[in-house]
């Protein structure tokens, strides 16, 4: 069945023009990048934008580049771009591991990383990983440019810090000190294309500083600061991991829905933390499983 409602389509030539049209068009206006969420949402009558602003004709928004000690992702960088970028493979293989779990090639070729966090469904795959990487989101709006730390980005299910008239102009990701190790574990019902039932990204740097974030087990992807503080500077041991696992319930707020029960999500998060911590450290130390190996 077709999209039933009519809307105006605007192909912006510049980001400024996109902002201008978005501002003028009012609160229902939507940015169209990959469209892999927006188009089916329109078909399902879940959203009814009066204006759709396509930003794909704007030059150079699909670049992945190194800016000092930061990796920059343009707002049109797709998950496939993450998978094929040598820069990503070299500097932040965790992004590649995460991208590899997203949907399937036909979606990854189109879906953007920025779009993933703009849709902001609780299970979004980019969320936990960008959280542990402490990315910041560059935004342009009617009042000019601003930067939103990723931890302030997710406001609620399908709600972000993006304000009316604003468009994401890029993601800036600080590259952690070497050596570091990281892992994204995603519990899925299916090994093939599936949404996350629960996910965790763990990152550890050389001095045993841990960063941990969970996805799909709360209204927004979120950092587990208490667990991070507990682990900070300590060497992993079975006992330490077991104690850290006791802190998981305090870090997440899973619900029972179509995809899993609250109980299962909670318990699996403990399992994933265990496996994630061990794998992140072993990767840091150069003897871990290759990036892309599925550990759950």
């Amino acid at each position: 069945m077709a999209i039933a409602h009519q809307f105006a389509y605007h192909k912006a030539a510049t980001l400024d023009e996109a902002v201008e049209v978005l501002t003028r068009a009012g609160p229902t206006a939507r940015v169209l990048a990959g469209g892999t969420d927006l188009v089916p949402w329109m078909r399902d009558d879940a959203v009814h934008p009066e204006t759709v602003v396509d930003i794909k004709a704007i030059d150079a928004l699909d670049e992945i580049s190194l800016e000092g000690d930061h990796l920059y992702l343009g707002p049109l960088v797709t998950f496939s771009d993450l998978l094929t970028s040598e820069l990503v493979a070299d500097r932040l293989p965790i992004l590649r591991e995460m991208a590899d779990t997203v949907a399937s090639p036909g979606i990854r070729n189109r879906a953007t990383v920025a779009g993933n966090i703009c849709s902001a469904v609780p299970s979004c795959d980019a969320g936990p990983t960008l959280l542990v990487l402490e990315a910041s989101v560059a935004v342009l709006g009617p009042n000019g440019a601003r930067t939103v730390p990723i931890e302030e980005w997710f406001v609620g299910p399908r709600q972000t810090a993006l304000e009316q008239g604003e468009v994401v102009t890029g993601l800036s990701i600080p590259i952690p000190d070497q050596p570091h190790g990281a892992i994204y574990l995603k519990l899925q019902r299916y090994e093939g294309e599936d949404l996350s039932q629960a996910g965790v990204t763990v990152l550890v740097t050389g001095n045993n500083v841990f960063r941990i974030a969970f996805g799909a087990v709360g209204p927004v992807p979120s950092r587990a600061h208490e667990i991070e503080r507990f682990l900070a500077g300590r060497a992993l041991s079975d006992g330490l991991i077991a104690e850290a696992q006791h802190l998981v319930l305090g870090a997440i707020s899973p619900i029972t829905d179509m995809r899993a029960t609250r109980e299962y999500r909670a318990r699996i998060c403990e399992v994933m933390l265990d496996r994630g911590l061990r794998a992140a450290v072993s990767r840091r130390d150069g003897n871990g499983p290759a990036y892309g190996t599925r550990l759950i």
Partner: peptide, 29 residues
């Protein structure tokens, strides 16, 4: 399925597979 789940609408767009059910026609310009 008209929501990108099944893949039977797959086409190659500039050589890369995409779901044509998830694209507006105007995007193919």
């Amino acid at each position: 399925c008209e929501r990108g789940d099944c893949g039977t609408c797959t086409i190659l767009l500039d050589g890369r597979s995409v779901r044509s059910c998830l694209m507006l026609a105007v995007e193919a310009d």
